[in-house]
């Protein structure tokens, strides 16, 4: 089933660069969709459109529609806070909030006004387990989160999004700063998560895209070149440009 339908989405930044051009895309539920391509292709921009984080940057013009469960995300009437609760996001560099591990997890719920300690604790435990971090931190939940290793911090950020019980998780190069072992853990966690969530991932390499993606979309200079089944796209691309990129001829 399609979770998100993107119709003719175009976006231009204030400095004149055109970041997205007429994107049409259906994103499937309970699957990992990888957006990949060389830098400047518009992958992150698209990702940021999905939870309206672009509102914070210098966007000149945005047109088209993004339908999430049939409702247009880009509508000015959309409640951004509710949207972001539904669409969680993990950034390239892990940004833990300057609090304890536990507080990082419960922060989003507390912001929403949740005060029941049992609810908070359960959310923290459940999300840590989902992010495959529980065993490593269960004895030191009150330690400052900044003391965790980079890989642990990134999984904590993932857990923090999960604690809010989103429907969609956006990941912007979540493993770019991690060692191979941590990367493996994050990827394994994602494979588990896709059973319940819709995951949209900007991988940091073609290899990662090939490893993880159920569906893959190749972006080049703001254009969606090819979009389709992951295994199909990486082994038998239809477009010449996709093939060149995937086989390592450029990029």
């Amino acid at each position: 089933m399609n979770k998100i339908v993107i119709e003719n989405l175009s976006l231009q930044y204030t400095d004149g660069t055109e970041s997205l051009r007429g994107i049409n895309m259906d994103i499937r539920e309970h699957a990992i969709t990888a957006l990949f391509g060389p830098a400047g292709g518009g992958k992150s921009t698209l990702l940021r459109c999905l939870n309206r984080l672009n509102d914070l940057t210098d966007v000149e013009e945005i047109s088209g529609r993004i339908l999430l469960d049939g409702e247009n995300v880009l509508d000015p009437q959309t409640d951004i806070i509710a949207l972001r609760r539904k669409v969680g996001m993990v950034f390239a560099r892990p940004v833990v909030l300057p609090m304890s591990i536990y507080q990082n997890l419960t922060y989003g719920l507390e912001l929403a006004g949740e005060k029941r300690r049992s609810v908070l604790y359960e959310a923290a435990e459940r999300s840590l387990k989902l992010a495959a971090l529980w065993d490593e931190v269960k004895d030191r939940l009150d330690d400052p989160a900044i003391a965790l290793s980079g890989g642990q911090q990134q999984r904590l950020c993932l857990a923090r999004s999960l604690a809010l019980q989103p429907e969609i998780i956006l990941l912007d190069e979540p493993t770019s700063g991690l060692d191979p072992i941590s990367t493996g853990k994050v990827e394994a966690a994602l494979q588990e998560l896709k059973k319940d969530y819709t995951i949209i991932l900007v991988p940091h390499s073609v290899q990662q895209a090939a490893r993880t993606a159920d569906y893959a979309a190749f972006f080049l200079q703001g254009e969606l070149v090819e979009y389709g089944d992951g295994a199909e796209l990486f082994t038998n691309p239809k477009e010449k440009r996709t093939e060149d990129y995937v086989t390592g001829r450029f990029g």
Partner: peptide, 18 residues
């Protein structure tokens, strides 16, 4: 104050005031 902190806070659904 790093922009990333702001993004992280907005990312978990904080309002501007929060």
């Amino acid at each position: 104050v790093p922009r990333s902190l702001r993004n992280a806070s907005f990312g978990v659904g904080a309002t501007k005031w929060q």
